[in-house]
């Protein structure tokens, strides 16, 4: 019933960047099967900015992980940036992620023993860039998040908001098409959260990144172009603006 409407939302021109068809996801724990996602259909055009909302445990992170190629669906197809993720092997997914996806986590997940600079440089070590090119990329990314002066600080020397900005710099360092963010402001105070949201908006507007963001915060969701609600594994549409 929702299929048509959802397709309508993504009235972008040409191919959608993300295309999810009839996706189900179950987790198996011992003998019990827990169905988490049931018949999800979704398309996001290039340059889209989608917010996912829903109660805790409704499967938001699960859906986001499928889009980001961290996991594979039980059934259905997930096509992102032209790659059929459900048919890709582990190592293909790893390679694909390194080229196409930037991650922003709720708990930042920076490597504590590496400096801000080195954290941002980390995904670049998976590319064939030279040392100098890597440095340029890192500096550019840190410039975007406004932390050039903090590049030699370790994560524990930074505030939560700064850490999240470093993590954003890390997410954009390789210039990925897609950025996924799982409750990026969930652990931050209001002011820092606003800064992060500004930044993400800029990434979408100025750098044309496609963004999918899971959030509990209606204000955050309001910044996105669209908001979808997940309830018990089913997408429920609630457009705004």
């Amino acid at each position: 019933m929702g299929r048509k409407t959802l397709a309508d939302i993504n009235s972008g021109n040409g191919e959608p960047l993300i295309s999810i068809r009839d996706v189900c996801k179950e987790f198996r724990r011992d003998a019990i099967t827990i169905p988490v996602l049931q018949g999800i259909n979704l398309e996001v055009a290039p340059g889209g900015y989608l917010a996912l909302m829903g109660p805790s445990g409704s499967g938001k992170s699960t859906l986001l992980n499928l889009v980001a190629g961290l996991d594979r669906p039980t059934s259905g197809t997930v096509t992102v940036c032209g790659q059929s993720l459900e048919r890709s092997s582990e190592s293909q997914l790893a390679k694909w992620r390194s080229q196409h996806v930037g991650f922003i986590f709720q708990l930042y997940n920076l490597i504590p023993v590496l400096t801000a600079f080195e954290n941002v440089e980390l995904p670049l070590t998976l590319t064939s860039l030279s040392r100098r090119e890597r440095r340029e990329h890192v500096e550019a990314a840190l410039q975007v998040v406004g932390l050039n002066d903090r590049s030699h600080h370790y994560p524990r020397q930074l505030s939560g908001g700064q850490e999240q900005r470093v993590s954003i710099a890390r997410a954009i360092a390789t210039d990925p098409t897609l950025i996924v963010a799982d409750e990026p402001t969930g652990d931050l105070d209001a002011k820092s959260a606003a800064e992060i949201l500004d930044l993400m908006e800029r990434l979408n507007r100025d750098f044309h990144k496609t963004i999918i963001m899971v959030t509990h915060d209606p204000d955050a969701a309001a910044r996105a172009h669209q908001t979808l609600h997940l309830q018990k594994g089913v997408l429920v549409e609630k457009t705004h603006e």
Partner: peptide
């Protein structure tokens, strides 16, 4: 979590 993040970024097993 660090290992999870490294793998998410694209480092192989």
């Amino acid at each position: 979590r660090e290992i999870g993040a490294l793998r998410a970024i694209g480092f192989s097993r």
